[in-house]
């Protein structure tokens, strides 16, 4: 693993810079490698893909942490006191209502129920696109197009949620 890491270090750094790490690219990569080097050994099928994946996950973590910090600071500035999350019960009710809308939007995608089935298998059950295509007897590009369609519809729905 280490030799693969060293061999592809520049590629990973280039990815990190393009991904928005900027001057922190070296630091992020260092952290990623520390974590991998300290993790218990296990057989890894595609070490290079694994390194990229871990690097991408680290960038997503950074993005989330930054996002959460901005939210906290904004709330603090807005209200002048510690932010209060909405009561748990109310939050759950809103989420249930939204989930019902998501389910309805998925069910309405045509051809039904293929698009919905493909989305659920891919995104909620973690099946790969090739496996889904084989399973349903459709082409890989059909799976891709259906997923694109489902993601687009859900993005539009999420935009409406954000505006509420």
């Amino acid at each position: 693993m280490e030799s693969i890491f060293l061999e592809h270090r520049e590629r990973l750094l280039r990815f990190l810079r393009a991904r928005g790490a900027g001057d922190d690219a070296e630091d992020v990569l260092h952290d990623v490698w520390q974590r991998i080097a300290n993790a218990p050994d296990g057989p890894i099928a595609e070490p290079l893909s694994y390194l990229f994946r871990a690097t991408e996950n680290a960038m997503r973590d950074r993005h989330r942490a930054a996002h959460a910090r901005v939210n906290r600071e904004t709330n603090w500035a807005d209200s002048g006191h510690a932010p209060e999350p909405p009561p748990g019960g109310e939050r759950v009710l809103i989420a249930r209502e939204r989930l019902a809308q998501v389910n309805a939007a998925l069910a309405a995608l045509t051809p039904a129920p293929r698009v919905e089935t493909i989305f659920r298998r891919f995104r909620l059950e973690g099946m790969g696109q090739a496996e889904i295509a084989r399973d349903l007897g459709v082409s890989l590009s059909t799976v891709e197009k259906d997923l694109q369609k489902a993601y687009r519809a859900l993005a539009e729905l999420q935009e409406r949620f954000d505006a509420e």
């Binding site: 280039r14 290079l48 893909s49």
Partner: peptide, 26 residues
């Protein structure tokens, strides 16, 4: 955004390995 969603879908696949393509797009 459409292209970004396409990459989000592609990367989610356990078999994804087009990291150079993704870097190029970024």
């Amino acid at each position: 955004m459409e292209a970004a969603r396409g990459w989000a879908i592609a990367l989610r696949d356990p078999a994804f390995d087009d990291w150079d393509g993704f870097t190029g797009w970024l």
